[in-house]
Design a binder for these strands. Structure first.
Lengths: 351, 351
DNA sequence: CTGTTAGCGCATTCAC
DNA sequence: GTGAATGCGCTAACAG
């Protein structure tokens, strides 16, 4: 990677490196009239490309934003990533991507890599885990991030806060009202469904899933309905398929038509696939609802009831929020937080 | 971003920066016995995080891989991105993400940014454009990339080569047999379909789309069938919807049941949605086939016939290929190129 | 095996 | 307005 340097450009233009630097970037002082032109021409003829690494080293700001997601091919994350990307582009920054297996250990590794690269900000999407087995890794993650922030880094997290990370300068969270929205969903579903409810949730201890389950149960209780049975599985499409398979067997045995709430849309899709594979159909044999309203839901049959979340906006806001000039939250930065909407569609229509 | 430095660690450990460097990284020589421990402890207690920027500057290698895609939320690209990510992780590198609007101009901008950051390699996914309006931008892109490679950068491109970029050291292409696979698809479809064929293609001049159209037409001709009519639209889901809408009107007027070949799966999905919206269904009123076999096709009804492409592998291989130690292609690096498979499913079943 | 000396490419104090 | 030093944090030649 040996390109031409500022010094070479300066020499060719017959000026000092300092002057060349001033003209090729927008320094405080406007450089000389014709001088500027000379320098620019020299740079052009040499095919000069400023070395952002060196620039970053000199002024301690890399223009990098680190994004941590579980799986970039999951539509939930790719939608958020799109928002992050947009915000980054708008703020003239580039995004570094890290995908983890979804464990805090993987996130810690990614965070360390970003910290080492001196990313201006780190954005973490994806649920926190309260599982006992993740406790140690959570501590490591919190420690890594605390140090990162203490060193001047900025951190934005989607949903819940990092477990064990105290409120510290540079650290901001974008709350997502999972629980309240799930409650609303349950309320609306309860009004139109007489049978039992079942929840196809993520692993016990996965914060986002837990919040949605809790909210849903509360909505059910408010409506005077018995609590839903909860099936745990992976918080992705295959987990949904798994839960769906378990349910299918039972469905043919029992007579009641249940309403299944899946912890997120991709799980719901997995549930539907499993049921279909067993000759069962939605909404005839079971009502089904998801969460997130990922983009390609519109092309699925039957149309899936869900809770709409502005995923791209979430990505955009958490990024912009993290990039905010140090000071405390400026007066109501238009970001009054994230809101969602219950969207009932055919998958939960009355049989 | 003021973290502690190597020098501080060295001082605390009572050694020279060089020694500290040697122990904290794997230099050629193994540092002293107890010395290593002292340094490590000092680093730990200071919360030392090596500055990869400075490191990169010092040894002219950033450990960065730049990935350029049209839209990270498109399943085709996110699948490839996953592969790139994997390969990068395996090679201990991080990936920088840039999404463009799909124009060479946008790609040029992204390439310039990556070049400025001295990324070790740049990976470009997404079709080339031969459209007249993109000619100038293509030249710029080629010039930018040529300079990048000439400066020691490495470049991997999926599918077609960069227009106007000569064979140059560091530049490699991962060919995708779009034309041949489309031909095979046409052959197999022709054997089972009697009616006319229609193609919902991307914009005229978009290389990937053009190749697929050409191959498909050739397959048709080989089978003694008349050429298919070609409808042009955007090379994404909405383009498919658009083409589908135009087709729907005609379908109810004419009596023949056509077989529609969409340039890629997301277009096919758009076509299906448009037909469905008009009360038409697949495969009853029209057969439908796509291309790519993106992951979530399995959850769509009816199951879509398509051509399977190993997208993740494509991402992995193009990345690994670009990272190869300079020299020419090592003897048959297991990567005998990309191959695909025609997969006929229910969307093209006989009516 | 360890410490010293130079840079890597650039921005930014200072003097002029 | 412009040029000459100094340093960002680290690695790599050298010496010892």
């Amino acid at each position: 990677m040996a390109a031409s340097t500022l010094a070479e450009v300066a020499k060719l233009a017959g000026v000092s490196p300092a002057t060349a630097s001033r003209v090729l970037n927008g320094s405080a002082r406007t450089p000389g009239a014709g001088i500027a032109e000379r320098v620019r021409k020299a740079a052009e003829s040499l095919g000069y490309v400023p070395n952002l690494q060196a620039q970053a080293l000199a002024k301690s700001s890399t223009g990098l934003i680190g994004l941590i997601v579980h799986d970039i091919a999951d539509p939930y994350f790719s939608a958020i990533a799109r928002g992050v990307q947009e915000a980054a582009h708008q703020k003239r920054r580039m995004v570094l991507l890290a995908t983890t297996d979804g464990t805090p250990a993987g996130e810690k590794e990614a965070a360390a890599a970003f910290a080492a690269r001196r990313a201006d900000a780190i954005v973490i999407a994806g649920s926190r885990s309260h599982r006992a087995e993740d406790a140690a890794a959570n501590q490591d993650l919190a420690a890594e991030l605390e140090r990162y922030c203490r060193n001047g880094g900025r951190l934005g997290v989607v949903g819940q806060g990092i477990i064990g990370l105290p409120e510290i300068d540079g650290y901001s969270t974008l709350p997502v009202p999972n629980e309240e929205l799930a409650r609303q969903l349950a309320t609306e579903l309860a009004a139109g469904h007489d049978g039992p409810f079942v929840i196809a949730a993520g692993p016990d201890g996965l914060a986002t899933s837990d919040e949605r389950v809790r909210g849903f149960q509360r909505g059910l209780a408010d409506a005077g309905r018995p609590a839903a049975e909860v099936l745990h599985a992976a918080f992705n499409r295959d987990g949904g398929f798994d839960a769906g398979s378990r349910l299918a067997a039972r469905l043919r045995a029992e007579s009641a038509r249940p309403c299944i709430f899946a912890g997120n849309d991709v799980m719901a899709i997995g549930v539907a696939a499993a049921l279909r594979g067993d000759g069962l159909s939605v909404p005839e044999d079971a009502a089904l609802a998801g969460f997130d309203d990922i983009e390609w839901l519109r092309d699925l049959q039957p149309e899936l009831s869900t809770v709409g979340l502005p995923l791209e906006d979430i990505g955009r806001q958490v990024t912009l929020g993290a990039l905010l000039d140090s000071g405390a939250d400026p007066d109501g930065a238009a970001s009054a937080g994230i809101s969602g909407t219950v969207r009932l569609r055919r998958s939960t229509a009355r049989a």
